[in-house]
Design a protein around this nucleic acid. Sequence first.
DNA 1: CGGTATCCCTAAGGATACTG
DNA 2: CAGTATCCTTAGGGATACCG
Lengths: 134, 134
Amino acid sequence: MAEHSAHPPAEPSQELVSDVFARSCTSRAAFEDVTAKWASLALLALAEGGYRFNALRRRVEGVSEKMLSQTLQALERDGLVTREVLSAIPPRVEYALTPLGVRAAAHLRALADLLEGAVPEVEEARLAYERRQG
Amino acid sequence: MAEHSAHPPAEPSQELVSDVFARSCTSRAAFEDVTAKWASLALLALAEGGYRFNALRRRVEGVSEKMLSQTLQALERDGLVTREVLSAIPPRVEYALTPLGVRAAAHLRALADLLEGAVPEVEEARLAYERRQG
DNA sequence: CGGTATCCCTAAGGATACTG
DNA sequence: CAGTATCCTTAGGGATACCG
């Protein structure tokens, strides 16, 4: 019920708060990694279960090998995804979420569900926008 | 407790499900707009209350005028943000979230909170990663 | 199969200048 | 103040080829 006063941090916390708005904070880097173009879709896919590279590539429509590879490396680096190599012929590499990855993916899933359900609303907003400004 | 079986849609739904994985679905476009580099931070900022252009620009560290402008246009187009021009001298333009924007921002906030709290975990993962592969 | 390496091109994005 | 316009640079990202 606050009027329109203090925008920023609201409450001075006693802890060393990491801030996603701060350019040099690790949380901002991680946030950008997670919300990056292909990363969020990859996390969404992995929330359905473990995937092998090419299966994941098929699930995330439109991603190239290169970008999926880079994306998975970034997520593995941040501790959101595990990569397990099954030494065999042919080679098998299984990707899965870490516990942290599971939690992050859950929030992305909720966001995706919201937007999937809001498609009519979004499309109407787009039409209205175009009527206003071509 | 499912083993590792059916990855994809799990349940055939009776509705025309929009799918964030589908390249040509509006929900995927909206999802990409929301998770775009500056959009998610802008939504997070606007979740704190209405902002004027330059105030918002200061809040979202590192964004250029051009990118903030483009980002806000995309979000307005999708019906997540409102733009109100107060005709006055000097000009005032106020940005705020729509009800849909509020809901989307809440999920992003939850994600940001998770990652802000996981900074030590992420940094340790990065160190471990570098030990593994330099 | 699961990648990495290379090439190449488009578009994202920053800096600056200018307008209502 | 709140942008748009222009210019320019970088890096995102696709296609192809090749290696373990």
